[in-house]
Amino acid sequence: MLESFSRSTARRARRQYVGMMFRFMGHALEAISRFDKTVIDEASALPEGLVFQMTVLPAGPSLAVEHTGGGSLRYLGSHYQGPVDLSIRFKHLAHAFLVLSFQEKTVEAFANDRMVVDGDIALAVRMTRILNRLEAIILPRLVARRAVKEYPSELGLLEKVPGAIGVYRRVAFSMIRDLRKEGLSQ
């Protein structure tokens, strides 16, 4: 009995962690697309109006962002139900947890058949580069090297620190704004 309780508790904790990370990543993608030239250039090549979703199968946590044009991304939330042009779906919560806790790189998870891409593979590669850039900027270098395929050699401390501060500041403000909206709607 105790063993099944601890397994279910661990499963709930992983689900909450993955959900929180998706929510953070959605806000962070929106934030970084406002000022990072590399992300803006990558996102500019996406079709305007493209909706990208990352989710856990069958009905796990998710995030959705839309390219609004000019390289700018807009976070659509964790409960987006509209049409999706491109999605990366983890086959199991445990697989998403491995990637989002930086125990496994995204490319390794894909190679290990832990995720499925629905949509244009070239656009999925572009979105992965955007996610890698985000991780390289906001994570400490030691952790980022575990998370991304190749740490950007041109990303120096003078670019990384202000970029990370900018992302975290914008994420904090947008998450507070969302919490206020949620509080007003209840």
Results as ranks from 00 to 15, higher is better:
Arg146Leu: 12
Ala94Tyr: 01
Ala45Gln: 08
Ile32Gly: 05
Ile88Tyr: 09
Leu100Lys: 08
Arg7Cys: 01
Phe35Gly: 08
Ile138Cys: 04
Ala28Gly: 03
Glu66His: 05
Thr68Glu: 13
Phe35Arg: 07
Ala111Asp: 06
Gly71Thr: 06
Phe22Tyr: 15
Asn132His: 15
Met175Arg: 12
Ala10Gly: 01
His79Lys: 09
Thr128Ala: 15
Arg14Asp: 14
Ile165Ala: 13
Thr106Glu: 05
Ser87Arg: 15
Arg133Ser: 09
Arg141Glu: 15
Ala28Ile: 09
Val84Ser: 10
Arg177Phe: 12
Arg12Trp: 10
Gln81Phe: 03
Ile130Glu: 03
Gln186Thr: 12
Ala144Ile: 00
Asn112Lys: 15
Arg14Gly: 08
Glu42Cys: 00
Ser87Gly: 02
Ile165Phe: 15
Arg34Gly: 10
Asp36Thr: 05
Ile176Glu: 08
Val125Pro: 00
Arg23Glu: 10
Ile165Gly: 03
Ser87Ile: 01
His67Gln: 11
Val167Tyr: 07
Ser153His: 10
Leu93Arg: 08
Gly69Asn: 07
Arg177Pro: 01
Tyr168Ser: 06
Ile121His: 00
Asp118His: 04
Arg145Gln: 15
Pro140His: 08
Pro152Gln: 11
Arg14His: 09
Gln16Thr: 04
Ile137Met: 00
Ala164Arg: 12
Leu142Gln: 08
Ile137Phe: 00
Ile176Gln: 06
Val18Lys: 10
Ala59Trp: 07
Gly69Met: 11
Ser101Cys: 03
Ala111Leu: 14
Ala172Trp: 09
Leu184Met: 12
Gln186Lys: 15
Gly19His: 09
Ala136Ile: 13
Tyr75Asp: 14
Pro83Ser: 06
Leu134Lys: 11
Ala144Met: 03
Gly156His: 14
Pro162Asp: 11
His95Phe: 13
Leu139Ser: 02
Phe24Ile: 11
Phe110Arg: 07
Met25Gln: 04
Ala94Val: 07
Val56Ser: 04
Thr38Trp: 03
Ala122Thr: 12
Ala111Cys: 02
Pro140Lys: 13
Pro47Lys: 04
Val107Tyr: 14
Asp85Ile: 08
Leu131Tyr: 12
Arg23Asn: 14
Arg74Trp: 00
Arg14Leu: 06
Tyr75Phe: 15
Ile121Asn: 01
Phe24Thr: 04
Ser62Pro: 04
Tyr168Ala: 04
Pro152Glu: 09
Arg141Met: 15
Ala144His: 01
His79Ile: 08
Ile138Met: 11
Gly77Val: 08
Met21Gly: 00
Ser33Arg: 13
Glu154Val: 03
Lys105Gln: 11
